[in-house]
Design a protein around this nucleic acid. Structure first.
Lengths: 222, 222
DNA sequence: CGACTCCTTGACAGCGTTCAACAGTAGTGG
DNA sequence: CCACTACTGTTGAACGCTGTCAAGGAGTCG
């Protein structure tokens, strides 16, 4: 659901090195729920999220969904892909992204552009690191631990804000953690009863963390 | 448990491009159960498995273990690591590896060695791809589907041999799939009762696949 | 207001874990 | 060679966590 395009936009300096290196980025806005790209489609672009959030997921043949990652403002998307996308990407709130031709990026790699090559490798490595932690959570944690670990990670990635606004719905959290919405809801209620956090506002999407160390205890992480 | 070292060994050509690029590899043998490296240790070497098999895993603070991957003959290890290893690696059978200084590898990257840079990126990308599939299995599959998917993957990686010899024990499979040994054993028994495969030999480590398409059905993969 | 979506809560069932017992194999030492 | 032990894998039974099903509350939007 394309809304607006601005080509050849100058790149501000708060972005990461990779973005700075490549001069020609375009902007694109996606409404909540719209699709950036689908699994098995040719991967023509790389993306950087300016504002909003994106989920990437795979499906089993019978429709079960597993969200591989949430991508927040500042995150890159589809850098690690080969010729085709290995997952589907959808905006989970209204989202602004910058995108650039993959061809252009890989042309730089082919020319031996060392800084760009290093940043691509770093981005892929960080993605892998997150995937490895995700595997640990999915394989060996109980539902309460999963939700605690999820909140901790989100809190960290959002730079520990006073009020953490969840961009995703309960069913997204559930499909990220390999659970059901009901279990996610029960775990959140349980942590709230422990006074580890409290909800702010009525939609139960805004969370105020009261005790990060207690939350870390509940997560039982390494 | 170091047994033998041979330095400055010539690299035969059946290895991948990365191995061919770097001239100076040394050989090392590990007994079953011994440790190649531990989580959080400085990552000084990259490894390639010549013969045998290796498991890499993380642990939760209370000891629960999650195996992130099995590495078989031909696979590279620790290419994707940063300064320190993010997981522990242990030989699960007697294993021969070649190893090389990471410093030397990254010196080539710094010089703008394009072929080496591309192969490193490809290796990391393949590792990530496997992790993504692993996430799908861990998050959204039932125990029988997990074991079926595991057997399919191993069969594929071993090039569909007549007799598939499992290098790992049941508890390794369990910790890879986020299950218990008992559940793994029950799933295997169930698939065997369906005549999808049969055990050969008494240790129940050798498997003869009879019906790969039926196994794929049981795995319900994408 | 009514229809819709999202979230929560309760009751219940089922899958997988836990606990336990046992069989088969490998390794060790007499 | 056999006895002994340790280890691995399988199977059974009971428990419990989490999924399933159902209902209801709260917010949103036309």
């Amino acid at each position: 659901m394309l809304i607006r395009v601005e080509t050849a936009k100058a790149v501000p300096n708060q972005l990461n090195e990779l973005a700075r290196q490549d001069a020609l980025w375009s902007e694109l806005k996606y409404r909540c729920g719209s699709t950036l790209f689908r699994e098995a489609e040719p991967a023509d672009y790389v993306y950087q999220i300016r504002e909003g959030a994106v989920r990437t997921y795979k499906r089993l043949s019978d429709g079960r969904r597993q969200i591989g990652a949430f991508h927040l403002a500042g995150d890159m998307l589809a850098v690690e892909n080969c010729e085709t996308h290995r997952c589907t990407a959808e905006a989970i709130v209204d989202t602004t992204v910058w995108f650039a031709k993959r061809r252009r990026l890989f042309a730089r790699l082919a020319k031996g552009d060392i800084p760009v090559a290093n940043h691509v490798r770093e981005l892929v490595t960080r993605t892998l690191e997150r995937a490895e932690n995700h595997i640990l959570v999915l394989g060996r944690q109980k539902s309460l631990e999963k939700v605690a670990a999820f909140l901790l990670e989100l809190d960290r990635r959002l730079k520990q804000p006073d009020v953490m606004v969840l961009p995703m719905r309960r069913c997204d959290i559930a499909d990220y953690l390999g659970m059901t919405v009901e279990s996610v809801s029960r775990a959140l209620s349980s942590l709230q009863e422990e006074r580890i956090f409290s909800f702010k506002g009525s939609a139960h999407r805004e969370i105020v963390l009261h005790d990060r160390s207690k939350l870390a205890q509940r997560a039982t992480l390494a």
